[in-house]
Structure formats: C-alpha cells, structure tokens
Design a protein around this nucleic acid. Structure first.
Lengths: 349, 349
DNA sequence: AGCTGGCACTCCCGGTAAGCGAGTGCCAAC
DNA sequence: GTTGGCACTCGCTTACCGGGAGTGCCAGCT
C-alpha cells in the first residue's frame, strides 16, 4: 500500500468527507462531520485526522478557515477502496428495461441509451455505436438504381446499416443478382475484420469469363469490393453521440467557467473517442477522475465508462461525464447496469 | 403601416441601436450613437428620437440612466424593414461547398450541415432529416434472416434507409424473391405519402392461390405491409439533430439563467419540432424573435429557419438558435445559403 | 498515546456607505 | 426642429466592518 499510515478511522473520515461534499457541494468541516456520521470521537480528533489527510494530499482547504474538499487523489482512493458500486433500485431497473425494450432499431437503441443514461445519472451521457469491425456481416444488398449505378447496403448483425452509391460499368440485372448471391455466400456471418481478406480472395477467384480485358475499366466486382472495403475501413472512426448537456448547466453557477470548454470538447469527435478510451471488457468499469483525463478542458470533470457487447465481445464503450464531485457509487451502478442491458438487447437482435 | 410617425431618421436610429447593441452587447447611449454613426445631428436630438422609439415600444431602458436596448418588437422591425440578408463572403461560400461536398451519405450530410451551420453562425444549429413522407421510394429490400424472420429495408431517394425485422409465417426463399419484385414494381418511384393507398390495393389484388385460409395467421404479405405502413407513419415524427451548444455558453455569463432551460428544451424532440415550425417553401427564411416563440424557455432566444429540399419540394427545415441579440443579417445569410446548398446536394444524390 | 475541550486566529461572506460616471429628461435659446 | 446646458437618477465599484465558521494548537484528562 502506498500509505500504510492511513488507519481505519482516517479512511472513514475521508469517506465521510467525500459523501458529504458530494451531497452538499460545500466544503465540510470537522463539526458537521461528527454530527452527520457517528464517528464516536470529537471534532478535535477529526481535525487531527484531517490535517493528516491533507498532508497526504487526499483533501484540500480552499482557504484557511474553510472546510475541506476532496482532491482528485482523494476521490481516487474513495472509488478504489472506500465504496462499492451501488445496485440500482428496482424502479430504476424497471425503467431501464421498459425504456430500452421499446427500441426499434440500432439508432433507436443508441439514442434511447443516451437519454436513459443522462436521466439516470443526471449527467452528460456518451454512447459509442457498436464497432463495425467487431460485428459480423448479416447481409449485403446490391440495388440497381440505373445501369451504371448501384447502391451497396451493408447490414451487420448489430443492426447497423451503411449504404453507399457506386458507379460501375454497365451491368445487367441478372448479373447483379448473381453477384449478390455469390458475395453474400462469401461473407455473410463473417466478422467485418475478416472481410478484407475474404474480398481479396473473392476477387482473385472470379470465373475466367468475367475477368476484364487487360487495361479496361475495373470490373463491377472490383469497384464494389473497393467501396465495400472503404466503408469498413472508414467507419473505423466510430460514431459517438452524447446528450444530457443540460445537466452540465444544472448546478447553476457551480463551475461556470468550466462549462464552456466542456461543451466545446464534447463537440469534437476526437475528444469523445479519447474520452471513452480503450475498449475494456464488457461491464468492466473505468473511472477517470479530474486531471487523470488527459485533456485540459476536462480536468475538473470525471468520466465513468464501461464496455458493452455480446457475451465477452466488447463492441463499444458507453459512459457519463460530470463534475469530479459526482456520486460515484450511484453513477457507477447506473453505467454498469445500462451497459449490461444494452449488451443483452444487442444479443437478441 | 402601423406607425406612420416613424420618419426616416428615427428608423436610422433604431437600426444603429440594434447594430451597436449586437456588436457590443451593452446598452447603447445617445452619445455613443452619434460618434459611431454619422447621423448628422447632436446627441440631444437623438435622445428625443429615442424617447419616441421607447414610447412606441421598439427599445427599452434597463434602468433609468442606462442606454437603450432593442425590444423584441424593435428587432422585428429591424429584420422586416431595416436590413437585408447579408451575402456570404466567398471564403464562407467556399467553406460550405468543400465541407458538404465530402459527405458520403445522408447521415453524413446532416451531421456535416449541423457542424457547418454552428461554425458559420457561431450559434446552435438545428437540422431536420429530410421528411420521409415527402420523399419517394427508391427500393424495398427483403432479406431472409431465418425461415420466419425477414428484415425489411426501405430506401428513399433522399438517401434515407430504415430497416425493421418482421416475424412472419414460414416463407421460402423463392417466394420472397417474387414478393420483393412485385412489391418494388408496385411502389418504387412513388411518394411515401402515396404508399399506404398503394399497399392496400396491393394486398387486395393478390393472386387467389395466395390468399390465406380464413381465420389463419396473417399472410407474410399482410405482415410485411403492416410493418411497412408502420415505418412510414411512425417516422412522421421526424428525426432532428442539433449541435454547437458550446456557442450558447460562449457569451460567458451573458445570459446565465437562460442557458439551462434552453439546453433542456433542445433535448426534447417535441420542442425541436416546434422550433423548426411548419414547413415553408425552400429557402424562404423564417425568423422568430424572443417571445414570438411559444415556449417559455425560449423567450430570450431567436430562431432563424429555412426550408430546404429539391426544387420546389420542401423536404425539411434547418436553422439556428441564439440569443435575441444576434447578428440577424449574417445569420440569415448563412442559413439561407446552407439551406440552398443542402438542397442541391440532395438533388444530385 | 491518544483523545478532548478550550481558545485565539484567520479569512470568507454579507451588508452598508461613498464616490464615480454614464446616461437621461427637460428647458431655454437658436 | 435642433442644440447646448444642467440637474438628476441610478447602477457599479471600492472600501469598510462585523459575524461566523472553521482551523491549529495546547494543556489536561483517561
């Protein structure tokens, strides 16, 4: 352990400080502490403990003769060792189910999840679309719009639908049908990450009569494969949506100078990606507190994320963002529960 | 005219007040006015005019001995009679083109439009997806996932793709193909609004041998038609996205109590719908100022919207929202230009 | 040793008072 | 109809001054 000196009561004090501060949003003093928690000792004793905690960097005094406020390090210890995720109430649990069960398609699942998370945690919610590369092909559709224009629709087993229009050399309807069948036979059910290899193979193996004359325009097959590849690769930069920004402003002038940069940060896809961080195992919670976030604009916010997916497959991340003084146990419980349930929804899709 | 008394100079004064107030965000006094605009008269004269304007309700004095601020009515007159939409700079124009030309599909067009509008106007941008009902069917695809499960994909000529999974009585692959062909023959190219009628007709006209035995489960045709109808009707509540909320917070503590309700309002789909209002002819600008908005939460904001679409067909609305003290000419110019260009993009899709 | 009550000290916060300055309305004169 | 002058209003800033919460320290108690 880093700080073996921290005996039991000192930890209790830290926990009490975090809880009170989160609840009241005001620096908490020794007297208030002994009143609200039965610590069994006098304020003076608590003061000694607090002095110690401050020395170790777990709490901080805004000014002489003010109460104490937890530091990032204090929150970190609180999250790691002093508390557990709080299980949801049955009402909340029911809300999750009824809210998500009504979702019609993937877009709907994602947007409902955002609203749900925002409402449950009263914070800003961030949800990433299920990764294309980790999902599998459910179907590829080729729709002839005109002799030289084909719409290529890719449907994944996570319910994601991507489409793109391709210009090709003239192609008959029957050839199109045959191509559709062969293409589907080749890649349906395979992971998207496998598809590039399969396509390459597919293009090489094509029937002899279909090979284009040397130097001619690329065949329809080639053109389609190229676009399909492009779709898969391009979409690796995942889509991320967020909502519940009103919760940022909720605390009135709580941290007024902070709200603008945070909103700005949220509007940048790149930032959101960093925010959600590396994919973790499903329902494994990650908490990043204050300055643990790399971005300057987010040094006074905390982020709680979790992976979600089918079984042990992490398809994407979701989570919430709020001020460092957040209700960690409750937030963690909500994020974790929502992540699990979204995963289950995707399974049955 | 409502107020025939308003002679030329008085109108000039109002215009000057609006312009200065928008630029400085501070109540503007008579002295500052004559300095910044060459009105050719003395401050005392301006004061007389201001008193008149105030009496008529065009401007307002926050407190005795402060400068004047335009009222909603003042902004209204300004927008209606005192200014024209400002044409964009060529740089801005170029930005629009390069930004939107890169869009890959409809989602991309919409999200890019939001970012573009937000950036151009430095305000909150709101964009509605092209209306399903006013677009036409490009293709309907039926994908057999399992003997009793079919995925129904509807593709419109605006590039919108909607899909839904349907449970049906067992159906062979060949029957599915035939059904797909017949269904497409029936409705491709037709307006979505016409589809319900066509489908009814279609179901009635079905070949005799295919009719289900009386009292049996509904045929696959019936089930599919039902879901298709549902998709069309349901989606009438259009999707709307917004962005650029950071711009709300930009003015620091400008209108601090206002930002929270506004953010809250934006998160409600219903509110957004009201915000964009009735569909208007493409590139016809609508400006709603302050209390002209029905919603209480938005009484200190103004909304500038425009329809967009192909040719004379209005497919949806887009626009921006900001404080009533906004740069109306510039905002109107940007909204109008973007609406026109988005329409053109949809045409060539 | 560790805990406790007492006590002096620090410093934030809220309220009040004074001075400044911007802006006005009015009026008499042009 | 316009102008300069002038007294007046009133919000904003600064300074000042208790009151109060909270602390650190210390001496005494268990």
């Amino acid at each position: 352990m880093d700080e073996p000196k921290l005996d039991r009561r000192r930890l209790d004090v830290l926990r009490a400080i975090v809880e009170d501060y989160v609840a009241t949003q005001e620096p908490v003093g020794s007297k208030a502490l002994v009143e609200r928690h039965n610590l069994g000792v006098s304020p003076a004793t608590i003061r000694n403990d607090m002095a110690l905690l401050e020395e170790e960097g777990y709490i901080h005094q805004p000014h002489t003769s003010a109460g104490r406020v937890p530091t990032d390090k204090g929150y970190r210890l609180f999250v790691d060792r002093l508390t557990n995720v709080k299980p949801l109430t049955t009402a909340e649990r029911r809300a999750i189910h009824s809210f998500l069960d009504e979702a019609l398609d993937l877009d709907d699942v994602v947007s409902r999840t955002v609203r749900l998370l925002a409402q449950l945690t009263r914070q800003v919610a961030v949800v990433q679309y299920p990764s294309l590369t980790r999902s599998a092909v459910r179907h590829v559709e080729l729709v002839g719009l005109a002799p030289t224009r084909i719409m290529l629709v890719l449907i994944t087993d996570t319910g994601r639908v991507e489409q793109r229009v391709v210009e090709v050399v003239p192609l008959e309807e029957s050839a199109l049908g045959e191509l559709r069948a062969r293409l589907n036979a080749e890649i349906v059910g395979r992971r998207l990450s496998e598809v590039p290899g399969l396509l390459e193979d597919f293009a090489r193996r094509r029937p002899a009569g279909e090979a284009p004359p040397a130097g001619a325009a690329p065949s329809a097959v080639d053109a389609l494969c190229a676009v399909l590849l492009e779709m898969i690769v391009e979409q690796r930069e995942e889509r991320i949506v967020f909502g519940g920004t009103a919760n940022l402003a909720r605390f009135g002038q709580d941290f007024p100078d902070t709200i603008h940069p945070v909103l700005e940060a949220l509007e940048e896809q790149v930032v959101l990606l960093k925010l959600l961080g590396e994919a973790t195992a499903p329902s494994l919670l990650t908490v990043r507190i204050g300055r643990e976030n790399e971005l300057d604009q987010l040094t006074s916010t905390s982020v709680v994320t979790s992976g979600y997916g089918r079984g042990d497959d992490t398809l994407a991340q979701l989570g919430v963002l709020g001020p460092t003084r957040m209700d960690y146990p409750g937030t963690m419980g909500a994020v974790s529960a929502v992540a699990r349930y979204v995963g289950r929804i995707l399974e049955q899709a």
